[in-house]
Simulated assay, not measured.
Amino acid sequence: MMRQVPDFPEPGIQFKDLTPLLADAHGLAAVTDALAGCAAGADLVAGIDARGFLLGAAVALRLGTGVLAIRKGGKLPPPVHSQTYELEYGTATLEIPADGLDLHGRRVLIIDDVLATGGTAAAAVRLLDDAGATVTGAAVLLELSALNGRAALGSMAVTSLHRV
């Protein structure tokens, strides 16, 4: 239930569109259950902007935990905790609120839709660590194995439901 979109967002890229899977009630339930099985004692789920929000909220609901949205830079009012990281074509920033959110001692499972090069996931780990949380692992719906994103996450537990 994954759609391949050639040459998006740029020529040579084969975009993996997960929208059909997430729009199917049975597909969404199966993915939610499988990702929730990766929780390993987490008491908070963090979904990475933007499709990780959808999956993270569903998993948090299933686990009975809260959910934290890890946002792209500039989307939250100050003050924020931020982490800037390198992309193939420049830099990007991830942010979480710095006020009204105490992450010290929280055990967090990171959820995202796709693990590619691992740069975004590694930045999310650093962001949460810097805010005082303990990241218990990462779980993704799809892993693009050829891009070796796991290497960016070191020895952290990473679960992918599907690898291509």
Rank of each mutant, 00 (worst) to 15 (best):
L147Q: 01
D102A: 07
F53A: 04
S155K: 09
V59N: 07
P11S: 09
T84H: 07
Q4T: 14
I110D: 01
A50I: 00
L127G: 07
I110L: 10
G137F: 12
A138V: 13
V135M: 09
V5R: 03
A157E: 15
A124N: 05
D130K: 10
Y85E: 11
M1P: 14
G27Q: 09
A57H: 15
T136W: 07
S160N: 01
T134Y: 00
L54N: 10
S82K: 13
D17Q: 01
G47V: 00
A123L: 04
L101K: 12
Q83T: 10
P9L: 00
G118R: 09
P6L: 04
A116I: 05
T65N: 08
T91R: 15
L76A: 04
F53I: 04
A139G: 10
A42Y: 01
A116F: 03
L63G: 08
P9F: 04
R71F: 04
P77R: 11
A60S: 12
G12E: 02
D130G: 13
C38P: 05
A60H: 12
A60F: 09
D112R: 08
T159K: 02
G105Q: 08
A50S: 13
P78F: 00
I48E: 00
G56Q: 06
E143I: 03
P20V: 04
L35P: 05
R126A: 15
G137M: 04
V114F: 09
A69G: 15
P77F: 04
D99S: 14
V45S: 07
R126E: 15
L144C: 11
M1W: 10
T91M: 13
I48V: 14
L44K: 07
D17Y: 10
A121S: 13
E10C: 14
T159P: 01
F53Y: 08
G154E: 01
A122D: 02
V108Q: 04
E143N: 11
A92G: 13
K16D: 05
A34D: 02
S155W: 00
D112S: 04
A116R: 01
K75W: 07
M1G: 12
R107K: 15
L61K: 13
Y85D: 13
V80A: 09
R106A: 11
C38M: 03
T134W: 00
G119H: 02
E95W: 08
D7T: 02
V108F: 12
K16W: 14
L144E: 11
Q4Y: 11
A146T: 14
A98L: 05
I13M: 07
L144T: 03
A46P: 05
V158F: 00
A23Y: 06
L87R: 14
G105H: 01
Q14P: 03
T84E: 15
D24F: 02
P9Y: 11
G137S: 06
V80G: 06
V125Q: 11
R150L: 02
H26L: 14
A146P: 03
Q14E: 15
E88C: 07
G105R: 04
L18A: 12
G105K: 08
K72H: 04
R3I: 06
P11D: 13
P78T: 04
G137A: 02
A58R: 06
A121T: 06
G47K: 05
A30I: 00
M1V: 08
A146Q: 13
P9N: 06
D129T: 13
K72N: 11
L94Y: 10
L127S: 02
L28R: 13
T159H: 11
H26M: 13
V125A: 05
A139L: 06
R150T: 00
P79L: 06
D102V: 02
L22Y: 02
K16M: 09
G27D: 08
